[in-house]
């Protein structure tokens, strides 16, 4: 792995590694790490850094839904046009064009179920190209961004062993 790939892999694992950590782990210096990260950001490879949060520990707990969208296209309107329009809403946390039975997979977040429902019925469903919406409210989250929730793997090793 090049140090660029290596640094990216490390940041994908833990975006809070310090420049010093990254330099030591990849056997480079801090200046190289800073340049590499700056380049990754500038090229748009790295889009941002966020915390992975267990929503069930928040008070009040935000409501999330996965929404399946079906659309019809015409001569003037393509997937990108519809996507751009939807992605602008701050309630939309994720938007992907997918293969299979529906076209877009939308992630929506709000303060309450009624807020999310209202958003879907008032902002999403009325978009002329959208022919169908199916909303799935998230009831429990077991794993987000590769991180398992729950008690995890306890370190039950002996403190000193051969």
């Amino acid at each position: 792995m090049s140090s660029r790939e290596e640094i990216l892999a490390l940041l994908r694992d833990n975006a809070r590694y310090t420049t010093d950590d990254l330099a030591r782990m990849t056997d480079t210096d801090e200046a190289t790490v800073e340049e590499t990260v700056a380049a990754l950001e500038e090229e748009g490879v790295i889009k941002g850094y966020q915390a992975i949060v267990d929503y069930s520990k928040l008070e009040p707990e935000p409501v999330r839904a996965a929404v399946e969208l079906n659309v019809t296209l015409d001569r003037e309107t393509g997937y990108d046009d519809i996507a751009q329009r939807l992605a602008k809403f701050p309630e939309v946390k994720g938007l992907r064009l997918v293969s299979g039975d529906f076209d877009f997979a939308l992630e929506v977040e709000g303060d309450s179920m009624s807020e999310v429902s209202r958003f879907i019925s008032e902002k999403v469903a009325p978009v002329p190209e959208i022919t169908q919406t199916v909303t799935h409210y998230v009831m429990e989250s077991y794993k987000e961004h590769g991180v398992e929730f729950g008690d995890g793997h306890d370190d039950d090793r002996l403190s000193v062993s051969p």
């Binding site: 090793r157 002996l158 403190s159 000193v160 062993s161 051969p162």
Partner: peptide, 25 residues
């Protein structure tokens, strides 16, 4: 085993960081 003695010493503390473990984490 000499390692046993160190295990027992380490067991006396509950706030140690162990770099004495011979198995994967």
């Amino acid at each position: 085993s000499g390692i046993r003695r160190f295990f027992e010493l380490a067991e006396e503390y509950d706030d140690i960081i162990s770099l004495g473990v011979g198995e994967p984490d």
